[in-house]
Write a protein that binds this DNA or RNA. Structure first.
Lengths: 203, 203
DNA sequence: TAGATTGTTAATCGATTAACAATC
DNA sequence: TAGATTGTTAATCGATTAACAATC
C-alpha cells in the first residue's frame, strides 16, 4: 500500500491518541474532534482515513477500536520490527526510556556501546553489547532498524556496518549527513537546524 | 525577509558545513559540491542562495566566507537568541551537551528542573534553577526560546508558564501535542512517529 | 425535513526541478 | 570559441484545502 509520508506520520499520531481515548469516552469519534486535538483540518483527517479505507458514519463518526485496528494493520510491519540503538550515551538512553515507557509495539532488542563499563550491563532490561558485535547481533536477532546516537565522528562508519549487516532503516541523531544507498530508508534528526529554524521564524 | 521553511533548514546545514570547510580547502565552492554533500539538486542549492541574494561566479563558484556571513546575516536573530531547557533528564542533558559542544551561536543561558538534587547544580557550566522560577528567570535573562524535555504529563503546564513569561518559540520533545497561540513558533519532535514512519517505509 | 456529518473530487498552495539564457 | 557554471523562470510534483454530493 502506498501512502504519503505526511499521512503515515499523522496516522501514527491518531493511533496513539485513540489508544489513550479507548476506554475514556464513548467508542466513536468525529473527524473534527481528531482534527481539533492536533490542530488539523477535519478534511485532512477524513482524507487520511479514506486513504486507508476507513469508514465512519454520519451519525457517530468513526469507531475508535476499528480505527486503531485499521491503522495498525496498514502502517505496522507484520513479522519484524526489531530495533537496535547504537550509542548508550545520554541521547541513546533517553530514546530507550522513551520508547520502552510509551510504546509497546516497537521492539528495541539490542543496544550497543564502545565503553567497556557499559558493555554487558543492561539498560531497561536490554543487554548492551560491544559495538564490535553489531554485525553478529543484527543478523542473529533479525534487526531491521538502527538508531545512531554515537558521537558525530563515528556516524559514517557505524552506518556502513549497519548496512552491511542487512539493516533496512536508519534514524540518525548525529549532525553528520549520511549518504546511503536508495534502498535504505533514512531519517535525519538534526537538532541544531531546528534551533536555527525557530530562531529565524520568531524574528 | 521571507524565506520558505525548507530553505531556512537547508541554509542552516550549508552554514555548518561551510564553517568546517572554511580553512580546509580552497575558499570557493560550487553549487554542485554543496548539493552532493547533502544529496540535493544543485538547482535547489542555487535557488536557496539566490533567495538570500548570494552571488557566485561561474569560474570558481561561491566564496565560502561570504556565504557564511550572508547566511548568518539572513537567518540569525540579531540581538537575542537566549534559550532555556526545561527538564534536565537524559534528553535535556543530551541536547545541552550537543548544543554547547557543537554550536557557538546558540546561547543556552538557563536550565530548569523540579528535582532538588539538580537545582543549583551546574550542567556544562549552566546553572540549573528550580522549575518554579521559570517566569522570573525567563524575564530577567530575556529568554526567547524554550526547549521542553520534561515528562509528557507536564508539557502543557510548562508551555503555559513559558508563554506567560514572554517566550516566542518552543521546541517540544514530549509526545503531547501543544495547542499554542498563533504568535508562538512551535516545533514538535515526536520520536515515536519517526519510528512508525521508518517502519512503514521499509516494508 | 433541516442539520450535521462523511467521502471524494477539483482547486490551490508550496516546494522541487527542468529548461534555458547569461556569463566567464 | 567550447565548456562549465550561475541565475532565473516556468513546469511539475506533492500536500492541503475548498467545494459539494451523499447519507443518516
Amino acid at each position: 500500500m502506498k501512502l504519503p509520508v505526511k499521512t503515515v506520520q499523522r496516522l501514527s499520531k491518531y493511533r496513539r491518541l485513540l489508544l489513550k481515548y479507548r476506554y475514556l469516552s464513548k467508542p466513536y469519534i468525529f473527524s473534527h474532534d481528531l482534527a481539533r486535538l492536533f490542530n488539523l483540518n477535519p478534511v485532512q483527517v477524513r482524507r487520511d482515513l479514506m486513504l486507508i479505507g476507513a469508514s465512519g458514519n454520519n451519525r457517530n463518526g468513526y469507531n475508535i477500536n476499528e480505527l486503531i485496528d485499521l491503522i495498525s494493520d496498514k502502517i505496522d510491519i507484520k513479522n519484524c520490527k526489531n530495533i537496535a540503538i547504537i550509542g548508550m550515551g545520554k541521547m541513546g538512553q533517553a530514546i530507550l526510556n522513551y520508547v520502552t515507557e510509551e510504546e509497546k509495539h516497537l521492539n528495541i532488542v539490542a543496544v550497543f556501546d564502545i565503553d567497556s563499563h557499559k558493555v554487558n550491563k543492561t539498560f531497561e532490561d536490554i543487554v548492551c553489547y560491544d559495538i564490535r558485535k553489531i554485525s553478529e547481533i543484527v543478523r542473529k536477532k533479525n534487526i531491521l532498524i538502527g538508531i545512531i546516537t554515537v558521537p558525530s565522528d563515528y556516524a559514517v562508519s557505524i552506518s556502513n556496518i549497519l548496512i552491511e549487516s542487512g539493516i533496512k532503516g536508519i534514524l540518525n541523531f548525529t549532525s553528520v549527513h549520511l549518504d546511503l544507498p536508495e534502498n535504505i530508508y533514512l531519517k535525519e534528526f538534526d537538532i541544531i537546524t531546528f534551533f536555527d529554524e525557530i530562531a529565524f521564524f520568531i524574528k
